[in-house]
Design a protein around this nucleic acid. Structure first.
Lengths: 98, 98
DNA sequence: ACTTCAATTCGATGATTAGCTAATGATCGA
DNA sequence: TCGATCATTAGCTAATCATCGAATTGAAGT
């Protein structure tokens, strides 16, 4: 859980998650959206993977990253809930968005 | 907003917020709950204040910290909402929690 | 004014982090 | 197998961060 918040502390990583929200994307595609080197992006991906916020799937030469929305949801709402905010029932198993 | 997530990245600071949830507390009282020096705690308080997650009120020799629940709520739910999670209506002005 | 107490600021240190270039691994098409 | 492509690992620097002890500020109380 601490890993999730650590991962969310960086704006680049938060934006990666947002990009992944509209569907899986390769490391290269993701990198195009940022003005940093590929290795730097790779490091960000590793942090996100370590926090279990994304899942990496090999697809030929590429590696496709998938957002693990349920993990993000559990961390965010779980924490919020411990403050009485965010209120009720988490739908919980909503791996696919929209 | 980035400041909020930065602030939340540290476990000590998250626990400070949790302690503050049950009511305002002085810097000294808060510090008793942790195994680090006062200057270190002071630095953590500064980060939380910088992120606008707490409000500091002078009271004689002491300084009383108050949780700014609405700020935490807005950051957490606002971000969650951008992912479609956390769903509907924020009660918004709920400064006092149960 | 002096002492005490609460908290912060100052200055230093060790650890972690984001960033880079260069090199390596892995996969594919010719 | 060769060359090209995608991504990571390796090795480094610079910056940020958590932490400490010591010094400082500020408010009471004597």
């Amino acid at each position: 859980m601490s890993l999730v918040f650590k991962a969310l502390a960086d704006p680049t990583r938060r934006r990666v998650l947002q990009l992944l929200q509209s569907g899986p994307m390769s490391a290269g595609e993701l990198s195009k959206h940022f003005d940093v080197s590929k290795p730097t992006m790779s490091a960000h991906f590793a942090v996100l993977k370590d926090a279990d916020l994304v899942h990496a799937e090999k697809a030929g030469k590429s590696i496709i990253y998938h957002l693990k929305l349920s993990v993000l949801e559990e961390a965010l709402l779980g924490f919020a809930h411990s403050f009485g905010i965010g209120a009720e029932a988490t739908p919980t198993k909503l791996e696919t968005v929209r």
